[in-house]
């Protein structure tokens, strides 16, 4: 038992949805439980084992002064550190505040803002410590998470291709909503992983998995404008879960 690799799951500023994805793997979790020792996963168990940990999954963004210290401790205790989800990977939807007046937000949202100790920005884990791998998505995809963990157990590279949502959309045999309906879609610039969930229900991709490597945002935004969206509307579709991901943020006009 004690020879099993240890797994730790950490939470920073987030909604817990990505950790829930792990709990959602009901069938697989039982077999996984025999392969790894879950040493720290407060959402699942109050039992906490001391570090160091072989694999740390980090959910959430850095949004308080305390976070900036705690993430360094997590890094020190972890052989491999993998971020899970848009918050940990790009700052999440809470990074909207990076582009607004933080003080105004704080006083508008909280009754007693003086008790709120928060940073003016919400930032990605990789802005603070070295990250070994980033799992994208809001929330992450169950199959990609299992692939990541099983690859870790087998000591191989995870098969998580950095390619467009379109490749998955076409392999599923879906009809392109952009070409056939004129529906705006972020699929051509978004990292694959969801299996083209939205085009499958006649919607455009919302970009939950953030920009793929080498995404050509200017080409897509030009097309969206030609399709009738205003500059403001284009900015809005890029201001969601990955608002602060450089691949998206650098191409908004309102940045």
């Amino acid at each position: 038992m004690s020879n099993l690799p240890t797994l730790a799951v950490w939470k920073f500023a987030s909604c817990d949805g990505c950790q829930l994805t792990l709990l959602d793997c009901e069938d697989e979790l039982l077999s996984l439980a025999g392969q790894v020792r879950i040493a720290h996963f407060l959402e699942a168990s109050s039992e906490v084992l001391a570090g160091p940990y072989d694999l740390s999954l980090v959910e959430g963004s850095i949004s308080t002064p305390a976070d900036t210290l705690r993430i360094c401790e997590v890094r020190e205790q972890s052989r491999l550190l993998v971020t899970i989800g848009a918050c940990a990977t790009s700052g999440g939807i809470q990074a909207l505040r990076n582009y607004a007046d933080f003080e105004e937000f704080r006083s508008a949202v909280y009754a007693s803002p003086q008790y709120i100790e928060s940073l003016a920005t919400s930032t990605a884990i990789a802005d603070h410590v070295r990250v070994d791998f980033e799992l994208r998505g809001c929330p992450i995809d169950k199959h990609q998470l299992l692939e990541l963990i099983t690859a870790f157990l087998a000591g191989r590279r995870p098969e998580i291709p950095d390619t467009s949502v379109c490749t998955q959309c076409k392999r599923r045999g879906l009809t392109c909503v952009m070409v056939a309906h004129g529906t705006p879609c972020l699929g051509p610039v978004t990292h694959a992983g969801c299996g083209a969930l939205c085009p499958a229900v006649d919607r455009g991709c919302y970009g939950c998995f953030g920009p793929m490597a080498g995404a050509n945002l200017p080409a897509l935004t030009r097309q969206l404008r030609q399709g009738g969206m205003s500059a403001r509307e284009v900015d809005l579709v890029l201001r969601t879960f990955n608002v602060a991901a450089p691949g998206f943020a650098e191409h908004r006009e309102d940045r």
Binding site: S164, V189, N216
Partner: peptide
Amino acid sequence: ERCLTCGN
């Protein structure tokens, strides 16, 4: 400049 490298 125009190509999205989307693979479609």
